[in-house]
Design a protein around this nucleic acid. Structure first.
Length: 434
RNA sequence: GUGGCUGUAGCUCAAUUGGCAGAGCGUCGCCCUGUGGAGGCGAAUGUUGCGGGAUCGUUCCCCGUCAGCCACCCCA
């Protein structure tokens, strides 16, 4: 078949996939709004300069979709939202009421090799609080994440949010006398630890210029799951998480560093427990300097992002995908013959005016074909307006699940159809199962 | 950007050392001129991803390319 191909890494949302996307959007909205966050959005296209400051070299130089527009300007499809958010805040910095609590769900693009859990086009939930720099504010964001996980059926047994603090790690690195210009490489080293064999990881560390003593010290730190007790921030954070009722989801992990350069304090990442996907389902942290970097006055923020691709795979593999209703409309008005075509259209109009979602078969066709169609579409009721009914001022209403049908007058029709649509609602659940 | 595997009907996949392109599911039609789901019968759909090469001859071998998957890199 000689179809024109889709652009590599882009996604087509057939109705079923669209249902999943909208389901995630609904759950994201519910979790965000339950904590009082407001929805916003930024431009889908930005200049590369916006990201150059702090987003990380890989993301800017290798993973951005950058091209020239017709005016010769270099533009970028947004690879993330936080820098846009920082600018938006900076623009209205003096007129906003703080703390600002904002969330967003929209498309992003990153030019990378598509593979499981990674496409070049994806949807991402972003949620941030700005203007309060406290462990309790960090805890709130983590609690929003946990609330979302719970709402899609991921219990604490199935998903964990791992938490660390960059300031704590920095002071530990200070104690080991790791040089400032080595910090970034050491961060990457820590990030990579779970993915490498320990012997090779050791070699790699020494190659980076760490002494054996520093390496041993580093390994002590990374294996110390009580390290958080040394950090007042983390101690307060975990207390707040307890009060927020989400402690069951949380684990301290000194190995969590995160790649983005702008994180300065608390950092966290959520993983599905089986780790069949080695990717974080969400991640974020506190950034103290980002606003100043885009030209605003210093203002601290905390937030996280969650991609739809990994989330969708996790839910699917856990058997937590809801059974999405495929029914475009619950009621079909059949068309009996040419001379009754417009009467069927008028009948459908009448029902729609009464607030029902109604489809008319768009042409004259044999009834079996029309019923078959209604069946495939999982519709609940089919209406027949044939010569007999027309003569008596009636309409036949058929219950497509039971097969029963009755002829009713126009006066009784509405209640009858409404009753069917409601009573059969349970056959096409939109809520979650299992 | 690097490496590995894969690419055959709408979908999932067969096809013997290189010798006529197949099945299941789905779709459509009929059985059934006022009634769907089950069943029976029948039909349609192929540039074997694309381009080149070797060969009497290729879905099969070789090269290139594109796409998907997997791993690396990075990250949501």
């Amino acid at each position: 078949m000689n179809r024109i191909k889709t652009v590599k890494g882009t996604r087509e949302f057939y109705p079923e996939e669209m249902s999943l996307r909208n389901y995630l959007y609904e759950k994201v909205r519910a979790a965000s709004e339950s904590f009082g966050y407001q929805e916003y959005d930024g431009p889908f296209i930005e200049t590369i300069d916006l990201y150059a400051a702090k987003s990380g070299e890989e993301l800017v130089k290798k993973q951005s979709f950058t091209f020239q527009d017709r005016g010769g300007e270099s533009v970028t499809l947004r690879p993330e939202l936080t820098p846009s958010l920082a600018r938006m805040i900076a623009t209205k910095q003096n007129e906003l009421s703080y703390p600002v609590r904002w969330w967003s769900f929209g498309p992003f693009w990153r030019y990378e090799q598509p593979q499981k859990g990674r496409t070049r086009e994806f949807f991402q939930w972003n949620i941030d609080m700005l203007g309060v720099a406290s462990p309790e504010a960090d805890a709130e964001l983590i609690a929003v994440a946990a609330t979302f996980l719970r709402s899609v059926g991921l219990s604490p047994e199935r998903a964990t949010i791992f938490v660390n603090n960059r300031r704590l790690m920095d002071s530990e690195f200070d104690a080991l006398e790791i040089a400032t210009d080595q910090r970034l490489e050491v961060s990457n080293l820590v990030d990579r630890r779970s993915k490498m064999e320990s012997v090779k990881w050791d070699e790699y560390a020494l190659e980076l210029g760490l002494t054996q003593k520093q390496l041993d010290g580093l390994k002590d730190i990374l294996g110390n799951y009580d390290l958080w007790k040394k950090s007042e921030e983390l101690t307060r954070l975990f207390a707040a998480l307890e009060a927020l009722g989400v402690k069951a989801y949380i684990k301290f992990d000194p190995n969590i560093m995160r790649g983005l350069l702008y994180y300065t304090g608390t950092v966290f990442e959520a993983f599905e427990t089986s780790r069949s996907l080695k990717r974080a389902i969400l991640g974020g942290g506190r950034y103290d300097n980002l606003l100043a970097d885009v030209g605003g006055n210093p203002l601290s923020g905390v937030g996280f992002a969650m991609g739809d691709v990994v989330m969708g795979i996790v839910l699917q593999e856990a058997g937590l995908l809801p059974e999405f209703a495929q029914t475009p409309a619950p009621v079909l008005v059949t068309v009996f013959n040419e001379s009754l075509l417009l009467k069927s259209y008028a009948l459908a109009c009448e029902l729609r005016n009464a607030g029902l979602n109604v489809m008319v078969f768009p042409e004259v066709a044999k009834l079996p074909k029309q019923f078959k169609f209604a069946d495939k579409m999982k519709m609940k009721a089919a209406l027949v307006l044939g010569p007999d009914e027309d003569a008596k001022g009636q309409v036949v209403v058929k219950n497509l699940l039971s097969g029963e049908q009755v002829a009713v007058t126009r006066e009784l029709l509405l209640d009858m159809v409404r009753g069917l649509v409601k009573s059969n609602a349970a056959f096409h659940p939109t809520g979650q199962q299992g």
